[in-house]
C-alpha cells in the first residue's frame, strides 16, 4: 500500500473517533427529559444530493485516472470540486434558514449540536478541498495521468468517507 494512503487511513480513523464521540454525546443528550429536536431545514435534502454528486465526480476522476484518460480526470475533478463548494454554500444557507426562524446555537442543545456537527463536517470538507486544489493545480500544469493517479484516488477516498459521515449524521438528525 502506498505510504500516503496508509497515512490517510490512519487519519480517517482519528476523524472517525471525533465524529463517533459527537454522535455518542448527541444520543446521550437526547435521552434527557428536556430534549426539543429542531426542524431540519428542507435544504439539507438537496445538499445531501449535491454531496453525493460530488463524490460521484471524484469517483469518476479516479476511474478515469486508472484507465489513463486525462479528459475524464479533468471532468471528474472539476465536477467533484464544484459540487463540494455548492454543498458548503448550501450548508451556509441552511444555517441562515435556521437562524431566520430563531434557532440560534444557544437557544437549545439540539441547535447547538446541529451547528457544531455541520460546522465540523464542513471544516473537514474544506480541508479536503485544499488537497483537491493542489491536485487540480497539478493537473492544470499538465502533469501526466500517472502522476495524478494517487492524489486523485486519495481525494476520492476522503470524499467517500465524508459522504458516509454526512449520511450518518444526517440520518441521526432526521430520526431524532
Amino acid at each position: 500500500m502506498p505510504t500516503v494512503k496508509l497515512g490517510l487511513i490512519v487519519f480517517l480513523a482519528v476523524v472517525t473517533v471525533v465524529f463517533s464521540l459527537l454522535v455518542a454525546a448527541y444520543t446521550h443528550r437526547m435521552t434527557l427529559a428536556d430534549w426539543r429536536p429542531l426542524p431540519e431545514p428542507w435544504l439539507l435534502w438537496p445538499n445531501t444530493a449535491i454531496l453525493i454528486l460530488s463524490s460521484v465526480g471524484l469517483q469518476w476522476a479516479r476511474v478515469a485516472a486508472n484507465r489513463g484518460r486525462i479528459d475524464g480526470v479533468r471532468v471528474g475533478l472539476l465536477a467533484g470540486g464544484g459540487f463540494a463548494f455548492a454543498f458548503l454554500a448550501g450548508q451556509l444557507l441552511a444555517w441562515q434558514q435556521l437562524a431566520a426562524l430563531g434557532y440560534f446555537a444557544a437557544t437549545n442543545p439540539a441547535n447547538a449540536f446541529f451547528y457544531l456537527i455541520t460546522a465540523l463536517h464542513g471544516l473537514h470538507l474544506l480541508g479536503g478541498l485544499v488537497a483537491w486544489g493542489r491536485t487540480t493545480a497539478k493537473m492544470w500544469r499538465g502533469s501526466e495521468v500517472a502522476e495524478l493517479r494517487l492524489s486523485v484516488e486519495l481525494c476520492a477516498v476522503y470524499w467517500h468517507f465524508l459522504l458516509l459521515v454526512w449520511l450518518v449524521l444526517f440520518g441521526l438528525l432526521l430520526f431524532t
Binding site: V14, A106, L116
Partner: peptide, 25 residues
C-alpha cells in the same frame, strides 16, 4: 494518543462554545 486526543478535542471545542456562544453542552 491518536484515538484518545479526539475526545479532548471534542470536549474542548464544546466548552469553548459554551464559554463564547453560551451554548449549553
Amino acid at each position: 494518543a491518536l484515538l484518545a486526543f479526539p475526545a479532548l478535542f471534542v470536549g474542548a471545542v464544546m466548552m469553548l462554545l459554551d464559554r463564547i456562544l453560551e451554548t449549553s453542552f
